[in-house]
Each structure stands twice: as structure tokens, then as C-alpha cells.
Design a protein around this nucleic acid. Structure first.
Lengths: 337, 337
DNA sequence: TATTTTGATGTAACCGATATCATTTATAGG
DNA sequence: CCTATAAATGATATCGGTTACATCAAAATA
């Protein structure tokens, strides 16, 4: 591999001149510049970016902590991130945490050990908590999708409360009164907000909240299936299932059918995210569309702004949602519990 | 940020001793070692890995070129890669190429500019072709899933021909004679192999090959839907649809239902990959299971072996498949065209 | 013509670790 | 007690760029 000294020697100039000819061409005379460029071409010189970045102290790498890339929604978010990062000359170091705290820690440490400039976290957990406790410093981080409320860091989020409220209102308008919610883990702020939105809508409609209609899932198809199965076994089962993501909704739909019920005549099922499979469910899934790619690109842009000092304080960007009405939700059955 | 000199000064030793105390503790006396470790702790020293890697010339980064992370199968492959890479102290630089040649090139160049040690390519395209042409050097690459046949590089693949043959045989055994194949782009070697397997089975069963039953898709739900719609409009439509991935199969199932046909009584649909949604399709999808995560981990391990000089020649690893029989395929309808 | 200003280039320090080689100190053997 | 050998430590070059500063020539000004 040729280096800058080879080029300098061949061109008969100093290494400084070569560097300048490539970085600030106006500082170099046309004559020398052409000589240098010819030499660069001849030896096939490519600057060693490891050296450049070591010198500059900036890696241009961003760590992304994703709970699971196998989740379709997150996959879209990552896609948006990658595009935005590439546009600004950054690359993504991907970590599929799989809820493994140690794995998350080990990637977070990359920001400490100068392997990455900053980090984007997609779940409600501060991976720097331990590190910052020890060092007292605050590391560059952006939070997206799932939101940490205790920390003042730039954030991209959906108005989950309003979105859950909108979907619940939709179901209430269809005449449903027993609306179950297949939610995420109890401790998640995202789930907490969505449950709050669900209750807002119930309260506004004067429908009593029933704790037994809340079922905690884990965002997988299987958990949606299991949740629906158990909810349908209740003495007074729900006529609508509002799921916190489309995977669980699709799982729930299968359980509903296995239970011998027809959708949407006997029961309605709604999802959240509008992943590509939602429109291909049978029946097609009513859901909340989120701008997944935009989550990713916004998060990346915020982080880069933060890193490059263009951020004075931590903004909270709220992205819009849209209720997508399809055939999985319909009027509540005439004889309702 | 503290550096090795700070530690050395505080411990009252030379930087070389600090480095040794951390890298080869046996070369340092117990007394000095404890002194050094105390100093390390006191100043909160973390070696600057950018410096380490610049010095060593190894980045411990691997570029991964993925056609689309939004594809569930690829998401699983990436998950497997990330796990394996992490276990060996490497990180993944993810590039979602989205069929953008320029994007692919720009990431491939990272190997040239010392930003990454090697590359894993998931589609049948050599991103180094141009670079290697110019420089004459061969860059470390591993190919997985989609296979490049012209190049001698370590490869992880499925016996796609045998798998497609197995699925076709399954359909033939069910009595199907008009079996359509919703395949991938014509130029893809993967598709070529699978079509070959499909023909192997037809030939063995003495069923004539009908070109009009081959339909090129692009692995999306939409394209499966469209393909099925067009195939069902044929004068002599197929009784079975063999799709090259599960997304297209799920899209096809929707089209089949919209056409008023029942599955599997009127028509059978089979997929490929066994993504999580396959078991939740209605009816559950018969498909070929591939060890997606293992594809990822194997590819990463091969690349690391290659980088660390443990590979003499380019191995081809063939991973096993399994035909998963579910309810989307059944006996051919009695009155067949 | 003498002097200042501008432009172009070279010299060398620097980023932070590692590793070679030299040097000092400790241990063993005679 | 002295030397030979081993063990521990230090001084410093090095990786490949960038950049502050020095130098020098050419152009502009007095």
C-alpha cells in the first residue's frame, strides 16, 4: 500500500505539499498540483483513513443499538439511518443487542475508547449510565422510538399517547366497548404512553377501564398469538384487540381464527407500525403508520448535529402518525357483552 | 481523556512499562504492575483504540453489504453476523445497498482506505471488481447467500438447486403438474440454480417444462401478489405456485384469495426461507427453512479466518435446508388442466 | 532600489499507542 | 565476591497522515 511519502518522493515535493494538494488545492500552485495528482494516480495512492481519523480524533462512526434487527420496523429505521449517515460521510456500527445488557455495554464502550463518535439508542435504556457515573462526563447520544424520560438527550419520537388514543377512538366509534390492549413490557415508557392514550380515549367515551384487558406481550408474532388466545378465554372476552405492533396483531389474527371467530364481524384487530406485512394480512390490518425511515434519518442527523456542535440544547422531535384503516377492524358485533 | 503518558507519569514509570503491564503482564514485576493498574484506575484510562488500530494496521471492522435490511431473511443473517463478529472482537459496518451501485462502491472502498479489514457480500456482485482491476490486488471478501460463481472467494451457500428440487418434488408428489415458479431477477445465479433444481424435479417426473410458468419477481410482497395475479390469468393456470421467498409467497396467497380460490384445495403455494411470518400466514406456509443466522456467523468466521491467515484456499460451505410442510400446500385439485 | 506583502513550499512536531533495542537491576553459578 | 545470565525497565522510532511555523521567492509598494 502506497503512502503519502511515496507520492511526495515521486512528485519531488514534500509530504505537506501532497497533503495540501489534496485537502486545500488552492494553496498549491497549479503546476505542483498537477504533478502531485499525477503521482497520486501513478502509485494508486489512497489516504489511510485510519491515520486521518486517528489524527483528527474523529472516527466518523456511529454506534446503533437495536433491540432486534429482525423486527421489521427497526429494520426500516436502520435503513433510514444508514442512508442519512452515508450522506454525511458517517458509517454505522450495528449492534443487535438482543436484550443482552453486556453486549450493549460493550458497544457503548466503543464511544469511550474512540472507536465511535456517538451512539443512537432505540430502546429506553441509557447504556452510558455506568460509564458516566464513573467519569462524570456526558457522552453524545440520541434516543429514538423508545424514549428515555429521565435523560436530557436529543430525542425522536412519535406522540404515542395521541396515536394510541386515535386508534382507541376508532374502535370506540365502531361500537366496541371491550377493547383489549396487547401491549409491550410493563416497564417500557413507550407502552406506558400508549396505555395512557388508550385510557384517554376510554375516559373521554365514558368507558370503564378494565385492567384484565391489558396483556403484556414482547412484540413477537408468538406473543401476539398467545395474548389473543388468553384474552379470548376470558369469561367476558373483548370484541377488539389493539396490539402495540403489527407482528403481535398478525399473531393475534391467527389465534382469533383458530378460535373460530371471523374478522372483522366477530372481533376486530388493530396493529401499530404499518410494516409491509400489514397490508398482506388476512384481513388487511388496520394500523398506525409511523415514518420508520424518517425516525432513522432524523436520529442520525440529530446525532451528527450534536457531534459537530450545532446543537445548543436537546431537542425533542415529534414525528407524525397516520391511522391506516383496513379490513381487520369493523363494527362491534350486535350482541355485545 | 487521559492517555498512556498520564498513566506513566502518575505511576512513575515509562509508557512502555504501562503498555506492557496491560498487554503482557508477565513481563512486568508484580510491584510495578499494581502501581500501574492503580494509576490506570485513578485517571480512568482507556486505551485509545483508534491509535491501537492505526498502529497495528487492523481495524477490526467488517463491511457488510446487504441488498435490503428490510428483508426479514437478511435481517436474521445480519443478526447472526453481528453475534459472531462480536464474539471475535470485530464490529460490523452495515451498508444497506438498496441496489445502488455507487453506495456499494463507496463502502467497498472502505476496505481500500483502511477503514475496514474485509467485506461480506450478500449478493452476486463483486464490489471490488473495479478496484482490483486497477490495483491488481485481491481484497479480502466472503460471499454468502447469493453466490458469485466467477470468483474464487470463500463462500457460504445453500444447495439451492437441491432445495428447489425438493420443494418441486413435494408438489409433484401432491399431484401437481402445472407448477409455476415465482422467481427472482433473471440474471441472479441464485435464481438460476433454483430454476435448475425445479427443472431437475420436473424432468425426473417426466413433466414438460413450460416457460410461461416462470415469472420473475423482486422478492417483495407486492411482486408476489402481482406475479400470482398474472399467472392465474393464464388460459391454463397453474395449480401450484412455488415462490423463491416467503414474502412473495405471502403476497401470492393474498392474490390467490382475491381471485376467489381456496388454499390448499384449489391451489397450493410454497415459499422459501421460513421467515417468522411464514408460520403465521393463512394458511401457514409450506417452505424451505434456511439457517439464516448460521449463514451470517459462518460468513463472519470465514472472513476472520481469511484475514488472520488461517485459510489456505477458498472453501465453499454448504448449509443444510429443510422442507417445512405446512397447510399452504395440498393435493392437486381433482380436475386438473 | 529597498522594503513589505503575498504566495508557495519545506521542516518537523504531533496524535497515542506499540515494539525494538539499549540499559539497568536482580538472580544464579563459580 | 565477581561474573554470566536473566529479568525488568526505559528511551525512542514508528505507523501515516495534518498542520503550525519557518523559509524562501516573487510580486507589490514605497
Amino acid at each position: 500500500m502506497s503512502n503519502i511519502r511515496d507520492v511526495a518522493q515521486l512528485a519531488g515535493v514534500s509530504v505537506a505539499t501532497v497533503s495540501r494538494a489534496l485537502q486545500q488545492p488552492d494553496l498549491v500552485s497549479l503546476k505542483t498540483r498537477t504533478k502531485v495528482l499525477a503521482a497520486v494516480k501513478q502509485v494508486g495512492y489512497k489516504p489511510n483513513l485510519m491515520a486521518v481519523r486517528f489524527r483528527s480524533g474523529k472516527t466518523h462512526h456511529l454506534v446503533v443499538l437495536v433491540p432486534t434487527v429482525a423486527n421489521v420496523f427497526f429494520a426500516r429505521v436502520i435503513s433510514g439511518m444508514q442512508q442519512a449517515a452515508h450522506d454525511k460521510g458517517y458509517s454505522l456500527l450495528l449492534c443487535n443487542t438482543l436484550a443482552d445488557e453486556a453486549m450493549e455495554q460493550s458497544y457503548a464502550r466503543m464511544v469511550h475508547t474512540s472507536q465511535a463518535d456517538g451512539l443512537i439508542q432505540l430502546r429506553a435504556h441509557n447504556p452510558f449510565a455506568q460509564l458516566e457515573m464513573k467519569t462524570g462526563s456526558v457522552l453524545p447520544m440520541v434516543n429514538a422510538c423508545e424514549v428515555l424520560d429521565r435523560i436530557a438527550c436529543p430525542t425522536v419520537l412519535l406522540d404515542n399517547r395521541a396515536a394510541a388514543c386515535a386508534m382507541t377512538e376508532h374502535l370506540l366509534q365502531l361500537g366496541h366497548r371491550r377493547i383489549a390492549m396487547i401491549k409491550g413490557p410493563a416497564r417500557s415508557p413507550l407502552t406506558r404512553d400508549r396505555v395512557a392514550g388508550y385510557r384517554d380515549a376510554l375516559d373521554a367515551a365514558g368507558v370503564a377501564f378494565d385492567e384484565s384487558l391489558l396483556y403484556p406481550g414482547d412484540f413477537t408474532l408468538q406473543s401476539g398469538h398467545q395474548a389473543a388466545t388468553e384474552l379470548l378465554a376470558l369469561a367476558n372476552p373483548p370484541t377488539a384487540l389493539f396490539c402495540e405492533n403489527d407482528e403481535m396483531a398478525i399473531g393475534a389474527i391467527q389465534a382469533v381464527k383458530q378460535h373460530g371467530l371471523k374478522l372483522p364481524q366477530d372481533i376486530s384487530v388493530a396493529g401499530f407500525d404499518d410494516i409491509s406485512f400489514a397490508a398482506f394480512a388476512d384481513p388487511p390490518l388496520t394500523t398506525i403508520a409511523q415514518p420508520a425511515e424518517e425516525f432513522g434519518s432524523t436520529a442520525v442527523n440529530l446525532l451528527i448535529d450534536l457531534l459537530e456542535g450545532r446543537l445548543t440544547k436537546a431537542p425533542k422531535v415529534i414525528l407524525p402518525f397516520e391511522l391506516i384503516q383496513r379490513a381487520s377492524t369493523g363494527p362491534a358485533p350486535a350482541v355485545s357483552g
